[in-house]
Design a protein around this nucleic acid. Structure first.
Length: 433
RNA sequence: GUGGGUAUAGCUUAGUUGGUUAAAGCGCUGGUUUGUGGCACCAGAGACCAUCGGUUCAAGUCCGAUUACCCACCCCA
């Protein structure tokens, strides 16, 4: 032990940071399966992957997510570089994608722009079920179309992703929060309404009254809930254009057979949302039940300094999705087991097992051999444990005669194989049987 | 930031009204006559009982604090 180690709290070395998770070897296949399913579906819809840095200039998030939001005010991992610039680990995926699109003038490739991403995000929150400080979002972004068919198409895409995963437990809730013009009117109406009950509202709602009155609609306190019953509804304040847009979205969803409920209480916590907003919500994974959330953000690109460009998108919480699949007992295809395990005995046998393993691997089959110098018995045991379909024992005899026996581990059947140039021929006969 | 719950081996847990050397299952490693796995049997490794302090002749057990984890509020995916 070196002297320094004594002074260090070993928990700092052997414990993961609060709010982070390890995806262990026995679990990673689930992530891979879901990631592939999502990106495959995105590709089918014409989306291409975009990868942006984990960190960005802090100003980007301040501007896009919104200075007054909780995310910006208290949840960002912000720090100064040695050069003195303020950097922030991305708290969500939309801002980075929008920035990259603008910076690289991707719109010159033609509109609409369709991108998807699958990235880690960081928020300094108190962890609980479905909420981590490092979490993963799969998201899709669509730029350059104001048509309601884009909204419907996007929602429909998410819907079909969940259907592909055989998830039935989610309900789709949609709403429109209008454009800045009609939303301002609505917010004023809310303020006027709730101001009458200033003495009854809970403390948090009182603070929300100025900051974000729409949040009061969502409060769980019974008193606030009661008051909110008769509060003005967004949908009554939508301007003609927003109203028409929302109706068209609904019409298209109906037409596609996508089931949803209109929930006028859905509010997004990020400033950039306009018009259509939606959530896919579950009751099976605890209090943080929103597995996927998204909507339209027509003002975002302009807000970031680009030419006005309508946009929309969604983000899907990977941890929540996986935990939902777990809760619903949805079985995912497990990784392929070892095809053949070569048991090497003695120096020449080990060498030959080593060579054959490589050869089989080169042909695209999962093969393995001993790298621990274990006994025959231990190697057999190990082969069984990793679910090897076949084993081949290779010792001095096999090396000398260039012949070996391949055993089917399930049936116990045995086949003769040659280790010379006829290896593949003889190996394949048994292997495919 | 505010609450509630939990803390014994890698995992799941037992541990009596405080009383010898803290127990089991699973898992892990090895063995059961020389070159064929699973099953069974045997053996081994593995726990400063989260940490610090207090009460007591005596604390895994009672009390307090701290820390970590889990859950909820808040907020969001």
């Amino acid at each position: 032990m070196c002297g320094i180690a004594v002074c260090i709290d070993m928990n700092l070395i052997t414990k993961r940071v609060k709010g982070t998770q390890d995806v262990l070897p026995s679990q990673s296949y689930k992530w891979q399966f879901v990631e592939k399913l999502l990106s495959d579906e995105a590709k089918l819809c014409g989306y291409k992957e975009i990868r942006t840095p984990v960190f960005e200039h802090t100003e980007l998030f301040n501007r896009s997510v919104g200075e007054t939001t909780d995310v910006v005010q208290k949840e960002m991992y912000t720090f100064n570089t040695k050069g003195g610039t303020s950097i922030t680990l991305r708290p969500e995926g939309t801002a980075g994608a929008a920035r990259a699109m603008l910076e690289n003038a991707v719109y010159n490739d033609g509109l609409p722009i369709k991108v998807y991403y699958n990235t880690s995000c960081y928020r300094y929150e108190k962890p609980q079920a479905g909420r981590y400080r490092e979490f993963h979002q799969f998201g899709m972004e669509l730029y350059g179309t104001q048509s309601p068919s884009a909204d419907a198409d996007l929602i429909c895409t998410v819907d079909s992703m969940f259907k592909r995963m055989r998830i039935t437990d989610l309900r789709l809730e949609i709403n429109s929060i209008g454009c800045p013009t009609c939303r301002a009117k609505f917010q004023q109406a809310l303020k006027d309404y709730f101001s009458q009950y200033k003495d009854k509202l809970c403390e948090t709602c009182l603070s929300r009254l100025d900051r974000n009155p729409m949040r009061i609609l969502d409060c769980k306190s019974p008193v606030c809930k009661q008051i909110a019953e008769d509060a003005p509804t967004v949908l009554d304040y939508l301007c003609d254009e927003c109203s028409l847009h929302f109706n068209k979205v609904r019409e298209l969803l109906d037409c596609m057979g996508v089931k949803y409920t209109v929930n006028p209480k859905i509010v997004r916590g990020l400033d950039y949302y306009t018009k259509t907003v939606f959530e896919f919500v579950s009751d099976s994974i605890g209090a943080q039940g929103t597995v996927c959330g998204g909507g339209r953000y027509d003002g975002l690109v302009e807000e970031l300094g680009g030419q006005a460009m309508p946009a929309l998108g969604f983000a899907l919480g990977m941890e929540r999705l996986l935990s939902l699949m777990e809760a619903l007992n949805i079985e995912l295809p497990e990784p392929e087991n070892c095809g053949v395990y070569f048991i090497g005995l003695g120096e020449p046998g080990q060498k030959e097992a080593f060579r054959l393993t490589r050869e089989v691997r080169n042909s695209g089959i999962y093969a393995d051999c001993d790298i621990c110098s274990r006994s025959l018995k231990a190697q057999m045991k190990y082969a069984d444990k990793i679910g090897a379909r076949f084993t081949v024992v290779i010792g001095d005899d096999e090396v000398n005669t260039k012949k070996a026996v391949m055993k089917n581990m399930q049936t116990g059947e045995k086949f003769d194989i040659c280790l010379d140039e006829r290896f593949f021929e003889t190996f394949t006969v048994g292997f495919l049987k």
